[in-house]
């Protein structure tokens, strides 16, 4: 479904203000509801989730595109490279 050449997200999950374990749960839910090769963008400000979402991406053997830090918030871009 994702023929875009850029890394523009297909879905954006905003978890600003949310704490453990909600950012992880929302990430997992997004993975279940998006098709293969979808690009998911997570936006949040919980410090530990900034480290733990990429850890989950690795454990799930998905592709971590980028992590950005902007004004106390982070943005994590993930490509759903396999069905999990």
């Amino acid at each position: 479904m994702n023929n875009k050449s850029s890394n523009e997200p297909n879905v954006v999950i905003n978890v600003v203000g949310e704490v453990c374990p909600v950012p992880l749960i929302r990430f997992r839910k997004a993975l279940r509801s998006t098709p293969l090769n979808a690009i998911i963008e997570m936006i949040g400000d919980d410090e530990s989730s900034r480290r733990e979402i990429p850890m989950a991406v690795e454990e799930l053997r998905l592709s971590l595109i980028a992590v950005y830090d902007e004004n106390g918030k982070w943005r994590i871009l993930i490509k759903k490279t396999r069905n999990v």
């Binding site: 453990c20 374990p21 992880l24 749960i25 990430f27 997992r28 850890m55 989950a56 454990e59 999990v84």
Partner: peptide, 11 residues
């Protein structure tokens, strides 16, 4: 429940 849902998030 937090550990359980965290583990589910990790697959």
């Amino acid at each position: 429940l937090i550990i359980g849902s965290g583990a589910l998030s990790y697959g």
